[in-house]
Structures are given as C-alpha cells and as structure tokens.
Design a protein around this nucleic acid. Structure first.
Lengths: 204, 204
DNA sequence: GAATCATTGGACCCATCGGTCCAGAAAGCT
DNA sequence: AGCTTTCTGGACCGATGGGTCCAATGATTC
C-alpha cells in the first residue's frame, strides 16, 4: 500500500488533498505520467509546490500511487452492483453493459489503471507493482464470480475459474487499449462479447 | 510513414543507423520512451549525439517511429508463416503457439508496439497514430484470415470477421499487458486460448 | 491570548533532457 | 591527387524537470 500518510489532516487539509488527487488523476489520464509535470498539476489545482510535497512527501511517485487507488475505486464502483454478484449469466451481461457504459461516457479513452501500470513498469517498478495490485484485485472479483458459478453448477466442474477470469480480464484490458488507439468503443464491445462467449463455452 | 529520410546513406552509415535502432529498441522496450534519454541511447550504442540527429533529423520522435517499424517487422516475422495463412484451425493453433514461443523466449515482457502506442497517446499523438498503424496492419492479418475462413465455409456465413479479429487481437494485447504486470506467460496463454475458443464458436 | 501545528505561497536549486553547432576524420568520386 | 560529401566526436545551450526551503498565515487548544 506504499507509505502511510501518518500526519494529521484537518478537514481543510483533507479537502485540498482530495482536490489534488482528483484533478491530477484527470491530467495524468489524459497525458500520461511522463507527460504531466508537477507544475502542470500545480496549475491545474490552483495549489503551490509546497502543498504537493506536504500531502505527498514521497513526491510524484507517491502522488501517482494515490491517483491509482482513487481511479481503481472509481472504476470498481462503476461496475457495481454487478461486480460483486457475478453469479448468473444475466449478471455477467449486466457487468458487460456497465463497463461499456462507463468507458463510453468518459471524455478520455483507455484504462486509467492498465495504462498506468504499463507506463510505470519501466520507470518505477516498485510503484508499478503497487498499481498492479489494483489490477489483481479487480481480476479477483471476476474470478470469485466464476468460482461461485462453478459451485452452483452453472459452469462445468472441470472449468478453471482462474484461467477464465484471466482470459476475460485480458480481453477487457486489451479492448480498452484498442479503444484508446482506435478512438472507438467498438473494440471494447467486441472484446467483451467475445470474452463472455468464451465463458459460456464452459457452461454446464 | 512519417518523414522520409532522403539523405544518401553509405553502407557504413546504414550500418550505424541500424545499430542505433536495434539498441535503442531494446532500451525503450525495457524502460519505456519517457524512461529512456537520448544520452542513454548514445551510451548504449557507442555513438555520439550528432549521429543521432544526423540519422534522425526529427529527433527522438522520429527515432521512436523507426523503432516502432523495426519492432513491428520483428514481431510479425515471428508469427510467420502462420500469420499469412490463417485459413485453417490448425494454422490458428500454430499461430497461437508461435506467439507464445516468441514472447515467452524474450527477456522482457510486454508488447513492444502496444505499450509504445499506449505511452505515446498522451505525449505525442501524431507519432502514436503512426504506431497505431502498425497495430492495424497486424490486426489486418487476423481479419484477412477470418475472412478467408468464412469464404471457405469453415466459419459461418453470418460471422463478422472484423469483429472476430478485433476480439482476438484485444485478447492478445490484453494478455501481453497482463503478462507484463504479472511477470508470467500464463495470462497470454489463457487469453489466446480463450480467443481461439471464441473463434471456434463461429465455426460452421 | 499565546503557543503549537497544520497549511499556504513561491522563490530557489541543481540535475537532466532534447537539441544545436562546429570542427575534424573518413570515405567516395573524378 | 584533390574535392566533395558523409560521418563522427563532443562541447555547449536553454528549457524544464522534480524537489527543497523558509517565511507567512491560518486554525486549534489550553
């Protein structure tokens, strides 16, 4: 979870911190980590350099970590309630629709977590591992759903929930990458429909 | 295709240029565009700054473009001969195996093209579009194969080759992303197997 | 109301980065 | 040979980057 921010936070301070995270999240989503300077963030949040380091003593890396956590929470939330109850075929379909609705409505394309992880792997491996944890957690929800479907008999007993979740999640991330490079939501839709078809192949 | 390098190249010059591209490709694959400075490249190729700008007048952006073309060619080549003849189920399976063999044998994980496109989208959109072209070309081979399979009756007449290719390609790219963040080849294998299962769903 | 601590503002520092420039070495060409 | 063109080395530059520091301003508590 990175470094714990142990310093006391007054309500005002907490508000400032959150303002920084939210605005910086948008900037980095649009222009990447390398393409966003602390000065950009300072300007975009109407704060000063000292505040950035006051709330994120670890500097840019720690800020990026906070942003990743924030984006992960936001993305997961957009998939609820389906994400927690992937016990039926209808729930998976609803999940698919919620994902497409979420990313289709965003002004920017691409996955805030996946692209972050990809970019960080080279520069800041420690932080990248941190971000990858969010991806694992996300994938865990899919796997948990698949496991319950197997237990309830909707999936065959010889189905491999881990592998299925991996496959679906890869389709999701790849669809998002293509959605970004092609500036269209179609790749994501095709990828998810394909992934769900794969899942149904393991139906009992 | 970007800027045409119209200057004359002696054999020696061409060799130097190629040496730069190859070494820089490895560096950027490992540490990303933002994480690799021209000085790193200069050191890694035993050349001087002036040579970099002599062979790539457009600077770093042009060099990145050349690297993308080089990597694209290398990656496509690794998938041959299957990539050109995806007319049978066996060919698709052979293609899957060649992809896994190629990426599994590499010291670094992740797709040289996909991660490049993702990182560049924010900083250098023009160059990103250039790189995305390579992705489109790659995807085109899959689509062409699917189309031939439909014509030959191996795929149902109502199958949508474009959508199928999109789905398979998304699985591939997503699998590579997860392969990178999880430091394992398993995600790619699961993703590709899932994608091929999807394809078989459209079998006649 | 005084002391303490979180909160701002912004000037400042130094390393690094992409890029320029020029002078010299090497290679072709006639 | 002698001239032209390509090739190479590396010093240099201006801009920008992340990060530090200190002084001032609030807010809280006793």
């Amino acid at each position: 979870m990175g470094v714990m921010t142990a310093t006391k936070l007054t309500p005002k301070g907490a508000a400032t911190r959150e303002r920084i995270v939210e605005a910086a999240a948008d900037l980095i989503l649009a222009r990447g980590v390398g393409g966003t300077s602390l000065d950009d963030i300072r300007a975009g949040t109407a704060t000063s350099k000292s505040q950035l380091f006051h709330y994120f003593p670890g500097g840019k890396s720690e800020l990026v970590g906070a942003i990743a956590a924030f984006q992960a929470e936001r993305v997961l939330q957009a998939q609820r309630p389906y994400l927690d109850t992937l016990d039926t075929w209808e729930a998976w379909q609803g999940w698919r629709d919620s994902v497409i609705a979420h990313y289709g409505s965003q002004p920017h394309w691409g996955c805030p977590i996946g692209s972050l992880a990809g970019e960080l792997m080279g520069n800041d491996p420690a932080r990248a591992a941190d971000v990858a944890e969010h991806l694992n957690k996300w994938r865990g929800y899919l796997q948990a759903g698949a496991e319950r479907m197997r237990e309830s008999g909707l999936l065959r007993a010889d189905a491999d929930p881990e592998r299925l979740a991996l496959s679906v999640f890869a389709s999701l991330q790849g669809g998002l990458l293509l959605t970004q490079t092609m500036c269209s939501i179609e790749p994501l839709a095709a990828a998810l429909d394909g992934a769900l078809a794969t899942l149904r192949d393991s139906a009992a």
